[in-house]
Nucleic acid binder design. Structure first.
Lengths: 90, 90
DNA sequence: GCGAATTTGTACGTATGTATC
DNA sequence: AGATACATACGTACAAATTCG
């Protein structure tokens, strides 16, 4: 499991005790941030492409880009057009 | 005049000597940045709403938001949901 | 060097949720 | 309660840069 969830999502039952209201792009950013800090993606490694992240996490491209932008603003990654997004070497 | 232009825009003549390739959101950010620095919008002043900026500059909401986000990243403004975007007092 | 495929960038539209006035 | 304003998330289309055969 461990998929992304948000309030705009279809829910199996409309009687929901608990619903994660955290925005999808924040959740995705957290996942990627953790993957980087845990070394799953090392320095200079390329992250999965936007298309791959879309499919793997079942979200729209805009959502993926928003998540990545967060990491960029945090100085964790750099993005190069036509190449991809890379883990910033310390 | 002084409207925004971009490469994706319809052009009166397809023989164009010079075309401003600067992205719309960058052009709009520049306009707002200048308006702030010139004092047109003073400290704690609220900027025009996203809807107003859309109409006044003839761009989509996403473009407006991207421009404003730039100013936010530059520390020039702060945005409050339901209120608006305000010029950050030094 | 050329062209196709891949990948990110820009720009648009729509719908809905949340907060404020 | 209604109107206004920002936030999230989906979609489409095309441009631009890079990579690969």
């Amino acid at each position: 499991m461990s998929g992304l969830v948000s309030y705009g999502m279809p829910v199996p039952d409309d009687h929901v005790d608990h619903l994660d209201e955290t925005p999808l792009h924040v959740q995705l950013a957290a996942i990627l941030r953790r993957a980087i800090k845990s070394g799953e993606y090392g320095p200079r490694d390329v992250l999965p492409s936007e298309s791959q992240l879309m499919q793997e996490h079942g979200v729209a491209r805009g959502t993926v880009r928003q998540a990545i932008e967060t990491l960029r603003n945090e100085g964790l990654v750099v993005t190069i057009r036509g190449r991809g997004t890379f883990v910033r070497p310390k």
